[in-house]
Nucleic acid binder design. Structure first.
Lengths: 166, 166
DNA sequence: GGTCTTCCTGCAACTCATTTGCAAGTAGGC
DNA sequence: GCCTACTTGCAAATGAGTTGCAGGAAGACC
């Protein structure tokens, strides 16, 4: 996924190079898991999307490609997060959004946890509702906390208007 | 809803249990709104809590004090946010939490919007589930966004173990 | 104190994202 | 090709938050 997202391309991502599907399968095998069509389809979708996708978006887009139950989509998304192949972003609309980021993939390859590699800011557009990863902006743990507080993760979300909606 | 402040102006309330209830009433009148027992009770509760409260927590605590419908609690909390007397924090568990912060109150007094004054980080403890305001840590808008992106608000949430759960 | 108007509250029913239970299906090891 | 453990599909449940509406009460006016 591009560090600088292109807001022009909306919900339906382009299929992309042939390598993408193969890459999704490779990643699934890399974690030693069973390769199934829902997993492959969801992961490929996340890979080719320039913004974080909600469960609803994934289900809608997949609906035209293959038959996948919505519960399965939930489970696959959870599983991808568990495996460190994707990360989950909580939005203001109480909807989870999922995104696959290069660092997460690299971390999975190198054995690090996805959470550990997932240290960047997000931008949530209040106009179009889309959420973009700002991988160039770190969500750093360098803040001074009150005594005794042990930080483990930082969530930095910027809200406003994206490049397309401004 | 009128926003004309009440002419009766009193001194800044001092911290202390006895003055707290009175202070909640003062604040409600300050925004020119009707003083009702649900509003007073919820605001007093937020004032006396050291952490952000969920709707469920507010309802539970209030249950032992007076009869308030859960829908009314939702509406009062929304109203407090609208008036800038409280702010709303979105958590990982898809539950809103509400907190009243000094800056927000001062902003209400000076006519500024609560959102404008609400520029601090939050700490979410994964052990006890509580969320605390870190008013000494600013959620600054000084990040470099991709061209065309217009930021309006920053949400900075640190997750980990709080001083009590460490 | 009494009346009136407008805003607020309580109640019931609803929405919708997400979860759970379970039986049927299938990927991959043997 | 067979088996077993892991996945999926379906139905139903959960739970936070919302909506519509009628009755109730805060506060203004007299």
């Amino acid at each position: 996924m591009a560090t600088m997202p292109n807001p022009q391309s909306k919900s339906v991502p382009k299929p992309g190079p042939a390598l993408r599907a193969e890459s999704a399968e490779q990643l699934i095998r890399r974690v030693g898991a069973r390769l199934t069509s829902p997993r492959s389809a969801v992961l490929t979708l996340l890979q080719s999307s320039d913004h974080a996708l909600s469960h609803q978006e994934v289900t809608d887009i997949l609906a035209g490609q293959l038959h996948v139950d919505r519960v399965t989509v939930y489970r696959v998304l959870d599983w991808l997060v568990e495996q460190g192949l994707a990360h989950r972003i909580s939005g203001e609309d109480r909807v989870w959004r999922f995104s696959m980021s290069r660092p997460a993939i690299n971390a999975a390859r190198s054995g690090k946890s996805g959470a550990e590699a997932h240290r960047h800011a997000h931008f949530a557009c209040k106009q179009c509702g889309q959420t973009f990863c700002l991988e160039s902006i770190p969500a750093a743990l360098d803040v001074k906390l009150p005594a005794g507080y042990r930080p483990e993760a930082v969530e930095l979300t910027i809200r406003g208007l994206c490049g397309h909606c401004k």
